[in-house]
């Protein structure tokens, strides 16, 4: 059964006000910006954002007023430093942040994915990150009772949104490049939206099951959205638009600047196709793959 939806339909159906949304799980690659922008356009409110690092996507959602709280290890602009909407929200409006580390957000999602209430770890012992943070609880090893550990509370996002290279219409998806915490984030989620550069025949996905990192039965909606991760890169499809991150940094230092940025790049375009048109053919062309590098074939025959 086809799960293909437009981005507008997928966000309207699967991202209600007040839900928790995991995004940006592949670190700086394949960040689902187009999905985030549709969330902003639909004026979703009181969301809980979940992710290891978000690059500037979380900052945009915060600036647009969609966010009640954040569960993350790092919120900023990776190549430039701070994210200003995040700073304003925390410093001036007291937005709630659960401070995680990359490892502990991975463990929280993995616990959620495995159906256990927590996973133990030795990271962050003695760190203030864990203080007053309900994701951390001190335990001792049942097998070596002097061994101190953090129990990291399981996390099950209401919806996880991921961007991949290709998927079939049922949501079976191929992804290659770095995964970050995508695998755990998908398995832990109550609902999953897969955004793909390309929709391909099921035979293409089935031809390489090792690359099928998302099985379709976990997926609720599949959205075809070429360039939907811009300005983040998609391995084999397009490169990182570094200038876009620089410009965002310069243009969002004030609330007024940020509002103008959102007007131009989100509210001012009805969908991602119009966003790509606004980027311009030259800019899109310049980000394209300069030299293809195909992997060797794998023989699955018997």
């Amino acid at each position: 059964m086809s799960k293909l939806l437009s981005m507008r339909e997928a966000i309207a159906d699967l991202v209600p006000d007040g839900c928790s949304v995991a995004m940006g799980l592949q670190m700086e690659q394949m960040i689902p910006f187009a999905a985030g922008h549709e969330i902003i356009r639909q004026k979703k409110r009181n969301l809980t954002l979940i992710g290891p690092i978000s690059d500037i996507l979380f900052d945009q959602l915060i600036g647009a007023g969609c966010v009640e709280q954040v569960i993350a290890a790092w919120v900023g602009n990776v190549m430039m430093g701070s994210a200003y909407n995040f700073r304003r929200a925390v410093e001036q409006d007291g937005m709630k942040v659960f401070n995680m580390t990359n490892f502990t957000i991975a463990l929280a999602l993995q616990a959620g994915a495995m159906g256990v209430p927590f996973l133990p770890t030795k990271t962050a012992l003695g760190s203030d990150t864990a203080k007053g943070n309900h994701f951390f609880y001190q335990i001792f090893s049942p097998f070596a009772p002097t061994e101190s550990l953090w129990a990291v509370r399981a996390l099950n996002p209401d919806v996880t949104i991921v961007h991949v290279q290709r998927a079939d219409s049922e949501g079976n998806a191929h992804c290659w490049g770095n995964f970050g915490v995508m695998l755990e984030g998908v398995r832990a989620a109550k609902r999953v939206i897969v955004v793909a550069e390309e929709i391909v025949d099921p035979e293409v996905i089935a031809s390489d099951a090792n690359r099928t990192v998302i099985p379709g039965f976990l997926v609720n909606a599949v959205v075809e959205c070429p360039y939907g991760a811009h300005p983040s890169p998609v391995q084999g499809y397009y490169n990182r638009d570094n200038d876009f991150f620089r410009e965002y940094h310069e243009q969002t230092k004030t609330k007024t600047g940020s509002d103008a940025w959102l007007d131009r790049w989100v509210y001012g375009v009805p969908d991602h196709e119009a966003y790509s048109d606004q980027l311009g053919a030259d800019r899109v062309e310049a980000l394209g793959v300069k030299q293809h590098a195909y992997a060797a074939q794998a023989d699955f025959g018997y």
């Binding site: 790092w74 919120v75 995040f86 990359n102 990271t123 962050a124 760190s127």
Partner: peptide
Amino acid sequence: RLPGSGGACD
């Protein structure tokens, strides 16, 4: 407010 730990604490 700074961006946070990322993987630094780990």
